[in-house]
C-alpha cells in the first residue's frame, strides 16, 4: 500500500510526463491556449492512460515475455503491439463514449483521435516495460496490474496539472508585452522551461 502511494506521488511530481520526460509535448503546446479545452484534453489523456496501461502490462507479462503463454521472448514485437492496442482502444473508447454519453463526447470527442499518437500514452507503456524488471523494493518498480493502474493514474494527473497550469499562464500572458520575435511559440517554450525548473524542487521528495 505504501509502495503504491509512493509510486502515485512520484509519478505526479517527480517523474512528471511533461517536465521530466517531455512526453506529449506536441498536443501540450498546441492545445494549451485556454483552460477549458486544456482540462478536456487532460482528462481524456488520463482516461486513455488508465485504460491502456493495464492492458499493455498484461500483454507484456502474459504474452510477450519468455515465461508467458507462448513460451518465447517476443519483446521485439512490443512496439507494434503496444501502438496497435493503443490505437484500437482509442477507437473503441470513441465509439463507446459517443453511444453512451453524447455530452462527454462533445467535450472530449475531438481530442480522442489526437491521443492515439500522443507520446505520453506510448511513453508510459514503454516506461512500464522497463520498470517490470526492477527489484520490488525500488519505488519505481511496477509489480502488478494494480501498480500499473496507479502509475497510469499518477502520470495522467501529472500531465493534467501541467497542461492546466500552462493554459492558465498563457491566458494571463495574452495581456503582457512580449518582444515581437518571441511572441507565441518562443515565450511558451521559455514559460514551460521555468515551470519545469519549479517542478525540479520536488526531485528530492521521499514518502
Amino acid at each position: 500500500m505504501e509502495n503504491l502511494l509512493s509510486l502515485f506521488v512520484r509519478s505526479i511530481f517527480v517523474d512528471n510526463m511533461i517536465f521530466a520526460f517531455f512526453l506529449g509535448m506536441c498536443s501540450y503546446l498546441a492545445v494549451s491556449k485556454n483552460v477549458k479545452t486544456a482540462l478536456g484534453l487532460g482528462v481524456a489523456v488520463t482516461f486513455v492512460l488508465v485504460v491502456t496501461l493495464p492492458v499493455n502490462y498484461l500483454l507484456q507479462t502474459e504474452v510477450l515475455s519468455a515465461d508467458g503463454i507462448l513460451g518465447m521472448d517476443l519483446s521485439f514485437l512490443s512496439f507494434i503491439l503496444f501502438i496497435a492496442v493503443i490505437a484500437g482502444i482509442v477507437q473503441l473508447l470513441e465509439m463507446i463514449v459517443e453511444r453512451f454519453s453524447p455530452s462527454l463526447y462533445a467535450s472530449l470527442g475531438i481530442f480522442l483521435p489526437l491521443i492515439a499518437v500522443n507520446c505520453s500514452i506510448m511513453g508510459a507503456s514503454l516506461f512500464m516495460q522497463q520498470r517490470i524488471n526492477l527489484p520490488a523494493e525500488n519505488v519505481q518498480a511496477i509489480t502488478g496490474v494494480g501498480s500499473a493502474l496507479v502509475y497510469a493514474l499518477g502520470s495522467g494527473i501529472g500531465w493534467l496539472l501541467a497542461i492546466v497550469g500552462l493554459a492558465a499562464i498563457r491566458e494571463k500572458m495574452a495581456y503582457s508585452d512580449v518582444p515581437t520575435p518571441l511572441r507565441g511559440l518562443g515565450i511558451t517554450f521559455i514559460t514551460v522551461g521555468l515551470m519545469a525548473m519549479a517542478f525540479m524542487c520536488f526531485s528530492g521528495l521521499k514518502i
Binding site: F19, P179, T180, L182, R183, G186, F189, I190, G193, M200
Partner: peptide
C-alpha cells in the same frame, strides 16, 4: 544538463530564427 534548460534553449533558437525572418513573427 537538466530538463528545463532544453526548453529554454529551444525557445532561444526560435527567438533567433524569428528575429531574422520578420514574416514568421506572430502578432
Amino acid at each position: 544538463l537538466m530538463p528545463p534548460m532544453a526548453l529554454i534553449i529551444v525557445g532561444c533558437v526560435i527567438w533567433v530564427q524569428r528575429a531574422r525572418n520578420k514574416e514568421m513573427q506572430e502578432q
